[in-house]
Amino acid sequence: MEILMGVVALLGALCLFSLFSFKAPNGSAAMSGLADAAIATFLVEAIHKYVMGNLLGIGYLAEFGNMVGAMGGIAAATLVMLRMGVQPVYAIVTGLAMANLGILEGFIVGYLFSFATPLFKKYLPEGVDVILGVLTLAPLARLVGIFISPGLEVLMGTLASMITEATLLSPIAMGFLLGGLIKMVCTSPLSSMALTAMLGLTGLPMGIAAIACVGGSFTNGYIFHSLKLGKSSNTISVMLEPLTQAHIVTRNPVPIFMSNFIGGALAGVIAAYFGIINDAPGSAAPIPGLLASIAFNEPHTLLMATVAAAIAGLVGGIIGHRLYIKLLAERIPLQHFANG
């Protein structure tokens, strides 16, 4: 039951954000802003605080990474509003009002207030609109952020606890399921960094997510190369950062996501077997996932897990490729781009 509840919780979060991204007004732009915020804060925190600071002992970078990691709410509100075309001064003042609040609070406030800012320009004289807008937006945004924060903390904390408990009870099974699902999110237009950051995953679940993204890079490399999806530069890019090839991924979702689930699941099992942990929420991406994991695991254990996950990712790519060619290629043909 714990495993089932953990899987249901993860699927529920995925469905919610997918539905928002594709159906909400400007949902895709808002999710892109959220992904940008995760990169700007949690990626910097993961590398500088945990690797350069805690592991290598550079105190300044540890302090710097810790400071940046606490600005998720500011970054989310600002970047979501900018992505949605809001005037920069409104985006900045709303973002600053999110100080000491989480990335999810910033995301929600930034999205909601993006629809309010055009009203100032519409109904107020030029110049006055900016002054009154800034003086009005900041306290209102802060009030909304403070109001929704307790509920969001309980909700996200509950989801994270369910996933963590299920993973600890049955690490191999959850390694398979969690690894496969997170790798699919990592390759989709959604952001696995943002998802794991909002859930606040740490420990073994975050370790599985991180290594699944690393191993799944080899799945993507193989499937792009074998199906000739673009040029060699596209193959290299999708291995380093899948979102750079979203235009190809979204045109060929069946072979790519099918292969990603298999490769990510196998890599997730490897991570669970070796007991890889990661206490840097939001580092579920190929490069950050590997670098952040260095700070929390024995070097030889992480090296063996990474090599095994890479092999597992290749195996997943081979299996996915063969399944697609034998069963689905005629009914679901590939969509290639003339320029690669």
Rank of each mutant, 00 (worst) to 15 (best):
S161R: 13
S114C: 03
A210F: 10
H48Q: 15
V89F: 14
A329K: 11
A292E: 01
Y273F: 15
I287G: 05
A13M: 15
V80F: 07
T136H: 03
G230R: 00
L334Y: 03
P125H: 00
L302Y: 01
A246L: 07
F147E: 01
S233E: 04
L140H: 07
I270L: 09
I211Y: 12
N252Q: 01
L152R: 07
T196E: 04
G275L: 07
V185P: 02
S161E: 15
A310Q: 04
E165Y: 06
F296G: 11
G73M: 04
G200M: 04
C213T: 08
L96I: 12
G282D: 01
L169M: 13
L328Q: 11
L96W: 09
A267V: 00
A292F: 01
D279W: 09
V89R: 07
L61K: 10
G215S: 09
G53S: 00
I74R: 10
P139C: 09
E330K: 14
P288W: 01
N100A: 11
A295H: 11
T41Q: 08
M193R: 04
A30M: 09
A197K: 10
D129I: 00
A265N: 11
M174G: 04
A166T: 00
F337H: 14
A271W: 10
M5K: 13
T301V: 15
G268P: 11
E165G: 13
I311P: 05
A285R: 08
T167Q: 08
F120M: 02
L132H: 08
G320R: 12
M67D: 14
G69I: 12
F224E: 06
D129C: 02
E63L: 13
H300L: 15
G275C: 01
L10Q: 00
G275S: 05
K49Y: 14
A305E: 09
L137F: 11
A160K: 03
L229K: 00
L199G: 04
S161A: 15
A97F: 00
Q245Y: 04
S283Y: 07
G175Q: 06
F176N: 06
V44T: 10
L177T: 12
T41V: 03
V315R: 07
L314W: 04
T41P: 03
S114A: 05
A197T: 03
M1V: 12
F17D: 01
S226D: 13
L140Q: 09
H321I: 06
T164Y: 01
P253Y: 00
A194L: 02
C15D: 13
A272W: 08
A160M: 08
G157Q: 04
P288Y: 00
N260Y: 06
L178G: 03
I92V: 15
I256R: 00
I58D: 11
L14V: 15
M5W: 13
V86S: 01
L16Q: 02
T78I: 03
N66Q: 14
